[in-house]
Amino acid sequence: MNLLTATYHQLDAWWWPYLFILIAGWFANDMWRILGVVLAGRLSDDSAIFTYVKSVATALVAGVIAQLIFLPSGSLGLAPMWLRLLSVAAGFAAYKASRDNVLVAVLVGEAVLLGLWAGLVGMP
């Protein structure tokens, strides 16, 4: 069996999940961290390449954020889509209104989700 095309739950061996995490988890992350240390000081942080790399990186993380909002797993997926979007938007608005206070953003976002869900939509 070709390990590269095997999924996480496909093989029965005890070591398979750990090998999967080692390659697709640890190495997929730390190769960039190691490269970052190696390249530190070479690439200027106001160069266009650096800015481009950072833009792609930020958009990738934004994609992760979108995935968590549009297609969440677990019980958050039971909340209506508009409520999930509204909660994050309210948290962001509170962040700006409070002059960049992360705690206020989190509290407002959570209050909108949990308050409206329990109050208007009905408990899950």
Binding site: T5, L39, A40, F50, A57, L60, V64
Partner: peptide, 23 residues
């Protein structure tokens, strides 16, 4: 149920930003 190779590509692309962060 993504295969190992596709998972590695997806994770390493999302982890790419760690390089400029570390740098």
């Amino acid at each position: 149920g993504a295969p190992l190779a596709a998972t590695f590509i997806a994770v390493s692309l999302s982890a790419f930003r760690l390089m400029p962060m570390v740098m």
